[in-house]
Simulated scan of single mutants.
Amino acid sequence: MQWVLEPLVGVGPLRFGMNPDQVASALDGATAYISTGLGSGVGWGDYSDWGVTAVYGEDSGLVAVAIDAMDGPLVRLRDVELIARVPSEVRADIYGLALKEGASVRVNWSGDPEVAAWGISMGAALELGLSPEGYTERRDRVITHALLVGPELARDPYTSEPVIRWSDVRHRAPNSGAWPVKAEQVRPRWDWTPLEGIGPLRFGMNSEQVAAVLNEVPAARHGRYPFGQPWEGFGTWMLHHDRFDATGVTAHYTSGFGAPPTLGAVTVHGRTGPQIDFEGIRLIGMAVSAVDTALIQYIEEREMGLVVGCSGDLGPDGLNMYVRTTRAGDTVVSEARFCQEGWEDHG
Rank of each mutant, 00 (worst) to 15 (best):
H240V: 00
V55G: 04
D345K: 02
R202L: 12
A116S: 15
V213M: 08
L214T: 04
W231S: 11
R337C: 05
L239K: 05
T331L: 14
T262P: 01
F227L: 12
P180N: 14
R271I: 11
P260N: 00
E152M: 11
D156I: 03
D345H: 12
G12Y: 02
P226N: 02
W109I: 15
T36K: 05
A124M: 06
S131N: 09
P200S: 12
V42K: 11
D28F: 05
Q340S: 11
R78C: 13
E89N: 10
P230Y: 06
L314A: 05
P194S: 00
P260A: 02
F257I: 04
A117S: 13
L283T: 02
A66C: 09
M70C: 07
V23S: 07
R138M: 11
L214H: 04
G347E: 09
V80M: 06
L62P: 04
D292T: 09
A66Q: 04
G329D: 14
T144L: 03
Q2E: 15
A64F: 02
R302W: 05
F16V: 04
T136A: 14
Y47G: 06
A98S: 15
E301Y: 01
F257R: 10
E161Y: 06
V210M: 06
M205H: 03
G228T: 06
D168T: 01
G312N: 07
R327W: 02
A265T: 02
M238C: 07
W50C: 07
D79Q: 13
V90C: 02
W179F: 15
K182Q: 15
L99C: 10
E301M: 08
H346N: 12
T36C: 04
M238P: 01
G29A: 08
N206Y: 05
A265G: 09
P194R: 00
E184L: 09
A178W: 12
P157I: 01
G10N: 07
G123V: 09
T247I: 10
A246F: 10
V186C: 04
M70K: 07
A183P: 11
